[in-house]
Simulated scan of single mutants.
Amino acid sequence: MTDRTSERAPDETPKLKEYEGEGITVTFEPRRCLHAAECVHGLPEVFDLSRRPWVLPDAAEAGLVAEVVRRCPSGALQYHPADGSVEHPDSPTSVRRTPSGQLVMRGDLLVSGAYGDRHETRVMLCGCGASGNRPYCDHSGPCAEPDDDVPEAR
């Protein structure tokens, strides 16, 4: 297992951390993480923020790791199975607007932004225009409140 950080010029590709396992590699794009915690709740043996590296892809079966990564609503976590297969987008594509304005999208997506056009399967896009990581939401504007994922906070 390796923890590699890839840093390139801002217009080339985003900063990614790569966690390589025997059956699956998990990548993490920190600027897109909105702390939904689907990963740490779904597989705490794989995703543990108190440990370095915080992702251990071999701590669970590759298919289970992929299933939990697909729960990441922002797309900050991605996976690449060792067999070369890819994540299949949801079909049909779905778009949901949260009460505070973010657009949660799942499907076969083409997103244009600072890094050019990117094919995506899961994204949370900024609805207020204040994100420092446009078009992706980074919770830096009015969309940050209330917490749309906690019904009691709405």
Rank of each mutant, 00 (worst) to 15 (best):
G23I: 11
G75C: 06
E7Q: 12
P99T: 06
S140I: 10
R32I: 04
R118A: 07
V95L: 10
Y19K: 09
Q78K: 14
A59S: 07
C72K: 05
R106C: 12
G107L: 02
P10F: 14
A153S: 02
T93L: 11
G42D: 06
K17E: 07
E29C: 01
V26S: 01
S6E: 02
T2P: 05
A62H: 04
V150Y: 06
S91I: 09
L34A: 08
P151W: 14
P135W: 12
Q78M: 12
D149H: 03
P81H: 06
E18N: 05
P151V: 14
L103M: 06
H119E: 11
G75H: 05
P30Y: 08
G21V: 11
D90G: 08
H119L: 10
P10Q: 14
G132C: 02
L34Y: 12
D3T: 15
A82W: 12
W54T: 07
T93H: 10
I24V: 11
P135A: 14
K15D: 06
A114Q: 15
E20L: 15
D58I: 15
P151L: 15
L64V: 02
G107E: 02
V26G: 01
V150Q: 09
V55L: 15
C137L: 13
L56V: 10
V69E: 00
M1G: 02
G113V: 15
S6D: 15
R51Y: 05
S112W: 07
L56R: 08
A59H: 02
D147M: 06
T2R: 12
R97K: 05
G107P: 01
P99C: 01
M1H: 14
E67R: 15
P14C: 05
P14T: 04
